[in-house]
Write a protein that binds this DNA or RNA. Structure first.
Lengths: 200, 200
DNA sequence: CGCAACTGTTACCGATCGGTAACATAGCGG
DNA sequence: CCGCTATGTTACCGATCGGTAACAGTTGCG
């Protein structure tokens, strides 16, 4: 992967991250930790070491930037799932448990505010916001992934169990923002094991 | 209750709802359906058939209005729980199931956006916002109520089961905003029955 | 009646919002 | 080297934000 040619890497040493990527990185940080509506485009641009004008050359509006931000994080989440799927190709039950575990570890971090897509769904109720399509596609996609793995694990009522896992994960993500991490995370882990173990 | 004196009810027939109550009613509707940050104080005042000036005579700031709005809905939720508790005084298991059922019926309504307190928690991440104290007190209080009823129902691991119920309810409230009502509500009901039935 | 408290109305404040025009600069490829 | 494209900079736009001053009813109560 990092093999490449031995010489001729000056254009890599200059390594200027293009502004669009810097803007999306800044948006990911700010929108997640402070909220989408709470953060103005000027702050996003400044945090990306650029300015509003350059931002608007890459994104036609704030709503478009938000949609692109959501595509970004949705892509990362789905890629992480697929990476884990490859590692547990022949063990769907282990895959699901590993996913729950990974999510749990992420939610343990004190700066975690749960799932960025879920939070965005609550912040953006307008049905015609360009971000909503991204949100719904991602959540439906993850639900399908869960259901497929539950079926592969030979669970009876796989669809319902998949939905129950989705509820638990989403519930943990928001509950940690109100009653803290400890209780929700313990309940999440225990309940997931139970759904996948004891349930037929 | 409505007995009162037969004459002399003109001041009741005039029945002017005082502005503060009208403002809180308007806030409850607007903040819930459109989001707290998305709604300005001017719109709240106008929807309450009054104006900004009168609003600021009753609430020292928008943040204070938000906190009062949250106190309002938290109080209503807790009152509904207590009302249901009285009706199932000697049947804690039935009480919990009835509560899940009531929440499920509420989430079935097409205009439902899940729990207003949970949504507010996601919209207001600033730790020193006056609404956060209300949010956390309410959520912790509901968790305590669940745990007490689980203990009264003789469940072993009552605290963990209470947390699992809380996760399911919060999860259903947010999942219906992304993947729709059907799946989450079916999973919620089934899982709750299971937690309270099959679990020792 | 007369006074006081509450409510309504209008106009305004500074700050910030999303978004744009105009121009200067830099870097890269022909 | 020239010219084009992408970026940076500054200044600005109208709209809206939360919040307030000043004044005009209105209402109820002594």
């Amino acid at each position: 992967m990092t093999a490449g040619r031995p010489r001729k890497v000056p254009e890599q040493s200059t390594a200027v991250v293009p502004p669009r990527a810097r803007i999306l990185a800044a948006a990911q940080d700010l929108f997640y930790h402070q909220g989408i509506r709470a953060v103005g485009v000027e702050l996003v641009a400044a945090s990306a070491d650029t300015n509003k004008m350059t931002l608007y050359r890459h994104f036609s509006s704030k709503d478009e930037l938000v949609a692109e931000y959501l595509k970004d994080v949705a892509g990362e989440i789905e890629a992480a799932w697929d990476r884990l799927a490859a590692r547990h190709a022949d063990d769907p039950r282990g895959h699901i448990l590993a996913w729950i575990d990974e999510m749990g570890r992420q939610m343990e971090r004190p700066e975690s505010r749960g799932c960025p897509i879920t939070n965005a769904a609550i912040e953006l109720p307008e049905p015609d916001h360009p971000g909503r399509a991204v949100i719904e596609a991602h959540k439906r996609g993850m639900r399908r992934r869960f259901a497929e793995r539950c079926r592969a694990a030979g669970l009876k009522d796989a669809d319902i169990i998949a939905d129950q896992l989705v509820l638990l994960l989403d519930g943990a993500g928001v509950a940690l923002q109100t009653i803290g991490r400890k209780g929700p995370l313990a309940a999440l882990r225990r309940q997931a094991e139970w759904l996948l173990g004891k349930a037929q």
